[in-house]
Design a protein around this nucleic acid. Structure first.
Lengths: 143, 143
DNA sequence: CCAAAATCGTTAGCCGGCTAACGTATACTC
DNA sequence: GAGTATACGTTAGCCGGCTAACGATTTTGG
């Protein structure tokens, strides 16, 4: 029955969303900003478009999230030196400081979510999640 | 590493959300309305509060979703016969007609999402999702 | 070299989750 | 019976996903 899967999935999603929000809020970071931070820690100065590509998000989602992070003092917008169409998102000092704190929160949150699963289960679980994503994003006729 | 789990989970969630929206839109139903429909097909005339309890949603979420469904002609609000605080949400003819169509879409969507998993994998997957929900909604100190 | 096409970021607006604050109606307590 | 407490639904407003439409800039082609 498909309904059982749907119910379980969306209930887990809501629990994850609530727990994430609660874990990150302490540091002045909202749930959706985590993804941008991860990418910018790895490579500072990315553009909204590049971030959207890497994260699989729509560009306006990144734009608005970046605006909120700018208001929160986590990053700032800088003009691109050679292409006036582009905007570079650069972390502030505070943005860099968050790396350690947020990484710890992510680990803690994931550990709590997966606490009753052993290592083999966790790997299977992540594999299932990746399968779902692939199955849904692959065009119908394709292998 | 917690990041891998987070990334896989949220990517799967976005794929599910997009696919759901696309599957239901054909019938004039938006993604979030599906949950109310399931409950009302089982028992018509439930109140917003009761629906929220059964679905684990916040009451205002149900209220607003119901308003949109009312605008779409899927249900209507009726006063409760004995308690003027309560509102009964009753499906229209169209709301009942959707049951067959939507159930088929849910099955099709779930089948596509899980297409590369055999029965044992699916059961394990649903089990993992339920574990995550339980682990995150159980207060910290509890067993 | 200049006009048309493509690229980029932003804005506006939809849906779906949430909390906080409010008004109304019922229930409880004295 | 009156006054307080509780329960219910709605409204307002936040965040995070999306698409559509726009203005500005760069690239391309004639």
């Amino acid at each position: 029955m498909g309904g059982e899967f749907q119910a379980a999935f969306w209930a887990a999603k809501r629990a994850m969303a609530t727990a994430s929000e609660e874990a990150y809020r302490r540091h002045g970071v909202r749930a959706g900003q985590q993804f941008l931070l991860y990418e910018l820690w790895a490579e500072d100065g990315l553009t909204p478009g590049e971030l959207a590509r890497r994260l699989g998000l729509a560009v306006p989602t990144v734009t608005r999230t970046a605006t909120r992070m700018e208001s929160a003092g986590i990053l700032r917008r800088e003009p691109h030196p050679t292409d006036a169409r582009l905007v570079r998102l650069r972390l502030t000092e505070r943005g860099h400081e968050l790396q350690e704190l947020m990484t710890a929160e992510v680990v803690r949150l994931s550990e709590k979510a997966l606490s009753t699963l052993d290592q083999a289960d966790r790997e299977r679980f992540i594999g299932y999640l990746n399968e779902v994503r692939k199955n849904l994003t692959t065009p119908d006729g394709m292998t």
